[in-house]
Simulated assay, not measured.
Amino acid sequence: MQRLADILDGISLMTASIIRWLALMMVLVQFAIVVGRYVFGVNSIAVQESVLYMHATLFMLGAAYTLLVDQHVRVDVFYAKATDTTRRRIDIFGHVVLLIPSMLVLLYWSWPSVRNSWKILEGPISVGGIEAVFLLKSLIPAFCILLVLQSLSLLIRLLLPGTSASKADA
């Protein structure tokens, strides 16, 4: 089971190592947009939309890695002062009752829209924009699948005796 958890963690680590460069690319493109518009008077809707696409990709595909390294948003009302055993129980509850079911519901309800978008190769958001909304919508099922896989990895670690659930604990 430990090996399976390591493989699932590897998916998040590999995804993060690839998409982290989008943050730098996004800043550079945004800088070029500002310089182009205010210095040279040049503007492109497609280039502006590319920042939206990069931001969405960074957020949606980076969420599983964020969960892996325990940097996700957590409501610390009870968690902060809880014992390790109570924290483990809260985490197990969160994965089994909240995270995994909500991702499966989101995947189920978003799939028809994603499928239809691919079927018609849905065009740009704005006139003159990137003609690939179907790719943007594909981030939704990818987000759900990556989070479910990472959640299963953390759940395996939480249920195995003597293991740490997150890479941040290691």
Rank of each mutant, 00 (worst) to 15 (best):
S138E: 02
G10P: 07
A168C: 10
H72N: 05
A142L: 15
S113E: 14
H72R: 03
A63Y: 02
V133N: 01
A165L: 13
Q2T: 14
F59C: 10
S50I: 02
Y108T: 12
P101K: 04
V69W: 02
M25R: 00
F59N: 04
V34M: 09
I100P: 03
A132W: 04
I7N: 09
M103R: 01
D6T: 14
V42H: 11
R87G: 03
S166T: 15
N43A: 14
L159A: 08
V148L: 11
D70G: 05
Y38C: 11
T86H: 13
P124C: 12
D169Y: 14
M26I: 12
I125M: 11
W109K: 09
S153P: 12
L98D: 02
L67V: 08
I130N: 03
L4W: 13
A64L: 04
L8W: 01
R157I: 08
M1P: 12
A16P: 04
I156E: 00
L155I: 09
A64M: 03
A168V: 12
P101V: 08
I90S: 04
V105L: 15
I7V: 15
L135M: 08
T15Q: 01
P112V: 03
S166D: 09
R157F: 11
I92W: 07
A32D: 06
L4A: 14
L146T: 01
D84C: 09
R89F: 13
S17T: 05
T83K: 05
F78P: 03
G62V: 06
C144D: 02
I140V: 15
H55W: 04
I45P: 06
M60R: 01
S17Q: 08
M54C: 09
A32E: 07
V114A: 07
V29L: 14
P141K: 04
K167E: 07
D169R: 15
V27R: 09
L22E: 02
I92V: 15
L24V: 12
R20L: 09
I18C: 06
V73H: 10
I92S: 04
Y53H: 10
L146I: 06
S138Y: 01
V105P: 07
F93D: 07
G162V: 12
E122Y: 15
Q2A: 14
L139N: 04
L22K: 01
V69S: 03
F134K: 00
R3F: 09
H55E: 04
Y79L: 10
I140F: 13
L146P: 00
V148M: 08
A170D: 15
W21Y: 12
S164C: 11
Y53A: 00
I92R: 06
S102R: 05
G94T: 04
L8R: 00
G129D: 03
F134V: 02
A5Q: 08
Y79P: 05
S110R: 09
A16L: 03
L4R: 10
G129W: 01
P161L: 10
I7R: 15
V27F: 14
G162A: 12
G129T: 07
S102K: 07
I7H: 13
L4N: 08
A16M: 08
F93Q: 06
L139F: 07
V114E: 00
S113G: 14
Q48P: 06
Q71K: 14
L107V: 13
L107N: 02
